[in-house]
Nucleic acid binder design. Structure first.
Length: 844
RNA sequence: GGGCGAUUAGCUCAGCUGGUCAGAGCGCUCGCCUCACACGCGAGAGGCCACUGGUUCAAGUCCAGUAUCGCCCACCA
């Protein structure tokens, strides 16, 4: 045993994180059986930019569970993954190096990124392969920085094999899962109106949408009736879509428009004859009660277009500009004034034309209305008809939807009400999952198309790779039976240019971490997993999509438990913004308060509950860590040694009896994913232990009450210390490990979780546990008297008279020597009274 | 418009299936250099548990409604 003279929490993080790494303390032992293993589906994090305190918060929650389960004897499978494909990485590369991807450029072997590219005004166009290489380099660097933070936070993950979603195996697994989806009919391609981000020039999925309030204006536009019966006035915020108009629509019960149903009107300026139709989705209270249907202004247009079987007059290209050629029936000279223009410019021009034609009534009426955005974009989404890949997710299939809802019910949600969010989302799906993205850095679709004699792809004629050849890149690999020279040639082939949505890969995180089809032995030992920890914001994406993939591939729910962490809020109760969160870096917090303290802050927030960013809580955590160090130092210096047989003193018996309850409560709470309660009961007991118990037995421990009395105190101190350190170990891994190393063999993090048996005394009576509380009250009275007299706590008391109920007096008398010693009372007397309150007359 | 959650001392939060539950910590006040810890210790003051009804012998604790805040979904002509 080696207890330092002056213990300090400084330097513990460097010391122990290095030791844990050297000892491979958290290395997963795959020889264990499924029953012995506790497996965690760690969220693969996007390592673009810097870690946010919110990440520290939720990842700590997971680590608490991991450490608890490990100490309980489970072999914990706790991998780490990086979600490095996708738009965030691309954007980071663009900004960091000052480059942009131009797929038409050839690969440049000697390419080096521009110096100071981040400050350059214009981004350098580079080939897709060069771009992907830069993504690869930069994400790897970012991931190392993240790993350093995670290690400092003491996440007990097995760092031996972190996966990257852009890595070879994950890519292969993603492609393989897709091919199997395709073979089963779960995946299909369709040419359909698609929500489209014109900045990124990619399709986006329903799960990635968000609404934002934007200014707009109602334009009141007159359509001439073909029968000469005057004009029909509609109101629209999108006048530039007039050339895309295919019909007008009003509610079937709307008496104002009933006479018009079935008749035709003519679009102003562009002169197209369109029908007036009835549909239940038309809202009589909106605008003039009659709307123009365009291909396409919003999702309602898509519904009307589909259900009313209207023609297509597409005018918007994938670049967000109006197409060069007018749609069918549209006046070419009028259209020539808007062709090639952006939506905004086209709107101005169309309004001008309408005014010239006298078809615009009054001034546009300014309003604010919600507009759909891609969550990572900053321009409104448009709807463009494109060919895309979809994966069935119950959005168009009641039976599948029910099955997925049942999967959600089979999951233990922590907290339970989070299940509602899942069900809400599944019930609100309006279509299948669009998984293709017109991007560069991602997992490519493992698909080629045969080209016809004119060199056009035949989309029904898929050329697929053999599973064993995965991963493949169809833009550089050839389909079986073809050679590279046939690429792009009539009768040859062409690769699918798209990559998969990042969720299409991260939804396979259990398969990736478990080594599905590459290491089926491992997969069988860890899957279905025990725990999926994640944020509430990605229930609709990551959680749901993982359930979908698991259901389609294996027919099971992928985990037993889902632990959902809340948000971090600013002190002003607003969700902590990205910019603010990035100002406060986790490293700075570790430096100032210590990792144990930051973990303490995170641990004091329950799952599913938003928590304030509160450095006050970190200060408390820091204080607790220092206290643990000092109290341990004292107890061990005194000679604390666990030995139940030596515990004879009433107060000591009482402490252990109370500790048994703490073990019970903390264990039950932890097992039920209530780490907050586990921490609370342990912490509360610990402070009583320090402030009351240790003070009460101090003198006796030094030998003032004989050998047996001292031995009893030391044995109790030893037992309690051992238990308390282990109860704290998941929360404060550094300080507990440090203290453990002074007097125990091995790491505390591989020690056994404490059990009631360790502190169980024979012939314990029911009330013994409360003796500690009783003497605590008495001690407080003595201290109060000294405090009131404004004297030091070590001021001697010549005489003290304790008055309390007879029963309490009887029990207090059994510990009077401890009370007298702690209060420096020379003469102590007891008087039973009828009052239930304890009072002490103190003479100094 | 539909839904979920929250509303307890100045602040951050505990209060499980109704009856010592009106609590903790921080902050504040007043003391104390007590030989583990001044990165400390002790003692205090502070709340009619958002509001209105209801159920009950008994309600922060259950029910209904209202208000405020946060979030999700829908709408977006």
């Amino acid at each position: 045993m080696s207890v330092p003279d002056k213990p300090s929490i400084d330097g513990l993080e460097e010391k122990w994180s290095a030791a844990w790494e050297a000892d491979e303390l958290y290395r997963f032992d795959r020889s264990k059986s499924r029953e012995e293993i506790y497996s965690i589906d760690t969220p693969p994090i996007t390592a673009s930019g810097s870690l946010h305190v919110g990440h520290v918060f939720s990842y700590t929650h997971t680590d608490l569970v991991a450490r608890f389960q490990r100490m309980r004897g489970r072999e914990v499978f706790y991998p780490m993954g990086w979600d490095d494909n996708g738009l965030p990485s691309e954007r980071r590369v663009q900004n960091f190096y000052g480059v942009r991807c131009d797929p038409s450029l050839p690969y440049d072997v000697d390419f080096t990124p521009p110096v100071d590219g981040a400050k350059a005004k214009d981004q350098v166009p580079i080939s897709r392969r060069n771009f992907v290489e830069l993504c690869d380099v930069l994400t790897a660097e970012d991931e190392q920085a993240y790993e350093a933070v995670w290690r400092r936070l003491a996440l007990s993950v097995d760092w031996s094999e972190p996966y990257r979603t852009i890595g070879s195996h994950p890519r292969a697994i993603s492609q393989k899962a897709f091919l199997r989806n395709l073979a089963r009919g779960d995946a299909y391609q369709a040419e359909a109106p698609t929500l489209w981000d014109i900045t990124f020039r990619t399709a986006v999925a329903q799960a990635e949408l968000e609404d934002r309030e934007r200014p707009g204006a109602y334009h009141r536009i007159g359509f001439a009736r073909v029968d000469g019966g005057g004009e029909v006035w509609i109101e629209t915020t999108r006048p530039e879509l007039l050339p895309a108009c295919v019909a007008l629509v009003a509610h079937p019960d709307d008496e104002r428009y009933q006479p018009l149903f079935g008749t035709d009107v003519r679009t102003p300026v562009f002169g197209v004859k369109v029908p007036v139709l009835a549909h239940r989705l038309a809202d009589p209270d909106k605008g003039s009660g009659i709307a123009m249907i365009c291909t396409f202004g919003d999702l309602n247009d898509v519904t009307w277009w589909r259900e009313l079987q209207l023609p297509m007059r597409a005018i918007l290209g994938v670049d967000g500009r109006l197409l060069p050629d007018p749609p069918d029936d549209v006046d070419a000279s009028a259209y020539s004034r808007v062709t090639g223009k952006t939506v905004f410019a086209a709107r101005e021009e169309t309004v001008a034309m309408l005014q010239e034609a006298g078809a615009l009534e009054g001034d546009p009426k300014q309003i604010t209305h919600p507009v759909k955005f891609y969550e990572k974009g900053d321009r409104p989404l448009e709807i463009v008809t494109t060919r895309q890949w979809y994966l069935r997710n119950g959005g168009r299939d009641g039976e599948l939807r029910e099955a997925l809802l049942a999967r959600g019910q089979a999951l233990n949600w922590h907290p339970p009400h989070m299940q509602v969010r899942y069900e809400h989302w599944v019930n609100g799906l309006t279509g299948d999952w669009l998984i293709s993205r017109q991007r560069y850095f991602g997992v490519p679709f493992p698909v080629w198309y045969r080209l016809d004699d004119a060199g056009e792809p035949i989309h029904d004629d898929l050329l697929l790779p053999d599973e064993t050849s995965l991963p493949i890149d169809p833009s550089s690999d050839c389909p079986p039976g073809y050679i590279e020279s046939q690429r792009g040639q009539p009768g040859g082939f062409v690769g699918d240019p798209d990559v998969m949505d990042t969720w299409a890969t991260s939804s396979l995180s259990p398969q990736i971490a478990g080594g599905w089809t590459f290491d089926d032995d491992l997969m069988a030992r860890v899957f279905p997993m025990d725990l999926r920890p994640q944020g509430q914001d990605i229930i609709r994406t990551w959680l749901f999509s993982t359930v979908v993939r698991s259901h389609l591939e294996f027919g099971v729910t992928p985990w037993a438990n889902a632990a959902i962490s809340g948000w971090i809020l600013d002190p002003d109760r607003k969700k902590m913004s990205k910019s603010k969160g990035e100002v406060i870096t986790p490293i700075a917090l570790f430096d100032e308060y210590g990792s144990d303290a930051v973990r303490y802050w995170a641990a004091s927030a329950r799952l599913g509950t938003d928590a304030a960013f509160d450095v006050g809580q970190m200060k408390i955590g820091r204080r607790l860590a220092i206290k643990a160090l000092n109290a341990s130092n004292f107890a061990l210096t005194l000679g604390a040694t666990p030995d139940l047989a030596a515990v004879t003193e009433p107060l000591d018996r009482s402490l252990l009896a109370a500790l048994a309850t703490v073990i019970e409560d903390a264990t039950k709470a932890f097992a039920g994913y209530d780490h907050t309660h586990a921490l609370k009961v342990t912490e509360t007991f610990f402070w009583t232990f320090c402030d009351d118990y240790v003070e009460l037995i101090k003198e006796r421990g030094y030998g003032s009450h004989g050998e047996a009395g001292a031995a009893s105190a030391k044995a109790t101190l030893g037992t309690a210390l051992s238990v308390l350190l282990r109860l704290f170990a998941p929360f404060m891994p550094y300080v507990t490990e440090e203290v453990w190393s002074w007097w125990q063999k091995g790491s505390i993090h591989r020690a056994d979780w404490p059990t009631v048996d360790e502190v169980k005394l024979s012939d314990l009576t029911g009330t013994e546990a409360t003796l500690l509380t009783l003497i605590g009250v008495a001690l407080s009275k003595v201290r109060g008297a000294k405090s009131t007299a404004q004297v030091s706590m070590r001021t001697p008391v010549s005489r003290a008279v304790v008055r309390a109920a007879a029963g309490d007096i009887e029990r207090l008398q059994t510990v009077s020597h401890d009370l007298a010693a702690a209060g420096r009372i020379e003469q102590i007397e007891f008087e039973p009274t009828d009052d239930s309150e304890i009072t002490i007359d103190v003479t100094m």
